[in-house]
Computed example of a mutant assay.
Amino acid sequence: MNITPEQVLVTHGAQLAISVAASMILRPGSTVIVGDVNYVLADRLFEQLGAKLIKVKVDQDGIDVDAIESICKQSKPSLLYIIPHHHHPTTVTLNAERRVKLLDIIRRYRLPVIEDDYDYDFHYENAPILPLASAEHDGYVLYVGSISKTLAPTIRLGYLIGGENFIWQAAKLKQVLDIRGDVLFEESVAHLFDMGEMQRHLRRSVKLYKKRRDEFCEILSASIGNVAKFNYPKGGMAVWTLFDPEYSIPHLSERLANRGIYMNDGSLHKYRIDVNGIRFGFASLNSNEMETFGQALKESI
């Protein structure tokens, strides 16, 4: 992105970056376009700020851009929250045609956007897709990224990128919430980038996670391939899995718990009545753990 340091606000994790950006834009009664399956903590945040969610369908090509345009024609919403790269939870990526059209809509309707690109670096088949914020958007796209996925979940370091004036005002708001970040820690991470260590770490991580993705998907296919559908994710650290309607994810969760294995009961993703899905994370699992989980899942089915 063609930006200056004055356009970057460092935050204590990407969630804080989303919170600061949304708080700058939303008021009680505001409207926010989100995916009908979406990052649950973002939805909760917007509702906490008093906004009404307008849910738009997400399919294998990303969010329905035509539906966004129809909404804008009727009454321009206050904000669009979008995860175009490895959408959470479905892992799909917005296709090129929709990206071009969405950028036109953003400019034409002067639509404020929060682009959440939480795991940009972890793309396995080719180079990561360039963010919407890297294209011409007339200053309407706010970009959120994270270092936490790069190093470790407990390392809370994110950032918000926007226009210089917006970032200046956002910094004033952040000061009320979090006087300052951990400056020594931020300098340490910057040093890793400057020395090239972070880049080398990322290359090793992408290679490792790609291997784990392949192994996990093979085990998943052998364990539940007859009762569930999923695609090999092109990036990210999770597999979005849709079970046949007659298989209860809460019941599976209970059976696995009896074996000492924790699995979310799927309630996080009950956005649509036709969604019987769960997001399986694989990045932290070694081969033995994957095999143990796969066998337990198969027997629970």
Rank of each mutant, 00 (worst) to 15 (best):
M198C: 06
K174S: 05
L192G: 00
G196N: 03
A171D: 14
G181S: 02
V206W: 03
L184V: 09
Q199L: 06
G181Y: 05
E197W: 12
L184W: 00
V206N: 05
A171K: 13
V176H: 12
R200K: 11
Q175D: 09
F185A: 14
A170W: 01
A171G: 12
R180F: 11
G196A: 01
H201Q: 10
Q169R: 15
A170T: 00
L173F: 13
K172H: 12
Q199D: 13
G196W: 07
F185T: 06
R180C: 08
E186G: 02
H201W: 12
M198A: 12
G196T: 07
E197Y: 11
E187C: 03
V189N: 02
S205Y: 11
S188L: 09
L173V: 09
D194T: 09
K211N: 04
A190I: 04
I179R: 14
K211H: 13
Y209M: 10
R180Q: 13
Q169I: 00
V183K: 06
K207N: 10
L192H: 03
K174L: 15
G196K: 09
R200A: 07
K211F: 15
R203I: 06
V189T: 04
A170F: 01
E187Q: 13
D194H: 10
A171I: 05
S188F: 06
I179V: 08
S205C: 07
E197P: 00
D182N: 15
G181F: 02
M198H: 01
R213A: 02
R204L: 13
G181I: 05
E186S: 05
V189Y: 01
S205G: 08
